[in-house]
Design a protein around this nucleic acid. Structure first.
Ligand SMILES: [Zn+2]
Ligand SMILES: [Zn+2]
Ligand SMILES: [Zn+2]
Ligand SMILES: [Zn+2]
Lengths: 151, 151
DNA sequence: TGAGTCATTGAGAAAAATTATCATAAAGGC
DNA sequence: GCCTTTATGATAATTTTTCTCAATGACTCA
């Protein structure tokens, strides 16, 4: 996927955003759009404090940042990933079943759509008696720009 | 695996603990053993603040709890899992390649050893140019005691 | 076993992150 | 443009995490 594709996609998704908020009787404020834009322009995701600092420029208070990120997560526009040091980063994601491949050096993220764990899930359910509802899967490594690990 | 198995295992692992710390020139203090015992007795894992509160009883300072949990993670004795609300919980784990199946209702965890993502990892490497170094995989659902989701 | 050395600890302070409160601003419906 | 109601931002409060440093105690070596 090229940068242009991403750009177009993010613009389109502001409309999705409006519809998603409307559906819940929530309003689409300029702050919500601005927060969304910040995240959708990032290829590494941001932590909450990072987002707060970045959004000071637009005079958006931190309470709002926390609230909007929460909403965007619940609506499926943002996803949670693990940064190199285990911190939570929030990444603008496409809806549906998606995982991520994260560079441990620079933090760049690629989406992974190629996952079939349904067989394993059924096996686990049979073995353990759990009702398996889903999974969280992340791959990590080093991206082409960063090259192979120096160690 | 039965509770007895777990019990025996945890006792044995205090020796592992001693050896692991020794190997790095670190000392095995009573605090380190106590922290380890707390975690190895838990089937749901604990957050850091939870562990701090529980260990006040033993007069272990919070700075120590943070430090010891960090060390145990680096040594592979504790693993990071996601609680129901996304919070980080630390779980006593067996060494090696292990994942977890977590109950979203009560937090009980079962280990999952049955994972083969190496084929997918190779495919991803070929497709993206990443040097894929590993993955983080969690399953979630509801355990037999909690029954199927009410929704 | 008994110093001596040096990593480790805990109290406390400090910094950082998160949540709560509430008067004001503004979005959406009319 | 009004009105109703949600959303916002300043501020305070709370919680979580990190830092500092004197005192403690684990391990080594004689
Ligand atoms: Zn990279
Ligand atoms: Zn999947
Ligand atoms: Zn359960
Ligand atoms: Zn695996």
């Amino acid at each position: 996927m090229t940068q242009d594709d991403d750009k177009r996609l993010n613009d389109l998704r502001v409309d999705d955003l409006r519809r998603a908020f409307r559906r819940l009787g929530l309003r689409l404020t300029s702050q919500r759009v601005t927060v969304w834009r910040l995240f959708s322009d990032s290829t590494t995701g941001l932590t909450l404090p990072e987002a707060c600092r970045a959004l000071q420029e637009y005079a958006i208070g931190q309470a709002t940042v926390y609230r909007v990120v929460n909403s965007l997560c619940e609506l499926g526009f943002l996803l949670n990933i693990h940064g190199t040091n285990g911190e939570h980063r929030y990444l603008a994601g496409h809806p549906g079943h998606v995982h991520h491949l994260i560079c441990r050096s620079c933090g760049h993220v690629r989406e992974v759509t190629d996952c079939d764990l349904s067989t394993l899930e059924k096996l686990l359910a049979a073995q353990t008696g759990f009702a398996v509802e889903g999974h969280y899967l992340e791959f990590y490594g080093r991206c082409p720009r960063c090259g192979p690990s120096p160690g």
